[in-house]
Write a protein that binds this DNA or RNA. Structure first.
Lengths: 166, 166
DNA sequence: TATTGTTATACTCTATAACTATA
DNA sequence: TATAGTTATAGAGTATAACAATA
């Protein structure tokens, strides 16, 4: 309440929380996690985004690129750069929608499904190392909190009936 | 234990957890968080990494670039690209160590401290929006879990007595 | 005119290796 | 020879805008 060496409690509180605020921790540790997952996915010829893409196709079935982009929260232009090599490798196929010839319906192939399983196993190993210091209870708590966060952020990506997975 | 439509429980468990595993959630939501924090920091002329850098100097006092890089978990070569514009803007100063003329000791200036406070406020606003759906208890739980994770990952960056902040 | 998908360009962040100056 | 810092180059990921084909 006085003195020139005594900052206000409010400002000091913010200053003290800078490096350990949940937002900055999430951003920086997320970067670290992404690096590890990328190494795991790269080992089987995928990127994390391509893994997410294949997993969405597996969980929700074939869909158009617009919907795929919305569920992933990425621009359609980025989607193309993810899809092209996957199609070239036969992990998925793009087929014109007979009802609306503008649309390309993306299908997961059997080869793609098998590759997805390999990548999932590699990812699991990477996560076990990443979260080695956290017990099962802590991992589940973290998962639940992040799921709640994702659900709350989803509307920003989706327009209406879509349900983005991130 | 039978049938061609019945995958093993283990594989199926991994497959089901793909898109909602704590690791992928952390990686993808971290990317989202980084985007928002970057917008906040950019508004006051900084990047998230530069914010982290200034905050470290504020919390731990002047230090050499090697130590700074270790605490941030980045290569010294990246550090230079972060430091140069900050020094040009007068937010910090590099001074040769008289005892070891190879070392450059980095000091936070008063201007830098004030800019750090502005950035911290902008970051706080961004985080309030980002975590709007989480109550105080959930934010604190998340913060604690991420702090535990950071502490466990620290040894990967530091060599010995260093204590990286991320 | 609006929508689906594509292409082209640029920007941010990071990793790696080669370089200098000091020790 | 080893270390502190610097520079140069390349790569991954993403955002933006302009474009072609179809509705």
């Amino acid at each position: 309440m006085s003195g020139d060496e005594q900052p206000s409690t409010t400002t000091e509180g913010i200053l003290k929380a800078r490096l350990s605020s949940p937002g900055l921790l999430l951003a920086l540790l997320g970067q670290s996690a992404m690096r590890r997952l990328r190494a795991a996915h790269n080992a089987v010829g995928l990127t994390p985004r391509q893994f997410q893409l294949l997993a969405l196709l597996h969980d929700h079935g074939p869909m158009g690129q617009r919907e795929l982009g919305k569920r992933m929260g990425v621009d359609p232009s980025i989607l193309v750069t993810l899809l092209n090599p996957l199609e070239a490798d036969g992990l998925l196929s793009r087929e014109r929608d007979a009802a609306d010839r503008r649309r390309h319906i993306v299908h997961l192939t059997d080869v793609g499904a098998r590759q997805l399983t390999r990548a999932a196993l590699a990812q699991q190993e990477a996560e076990d190392l990443l979260f080695a210091a956290l017990d099962e209870r802590q991992r589940e708590d973290l998962r639940r909190l992040l799921l709640a966060l994702r659900a709350s952020l989803a509307p920003a990506f989706a327009s209406a009936e879509e349900t983005p997975e991130c």
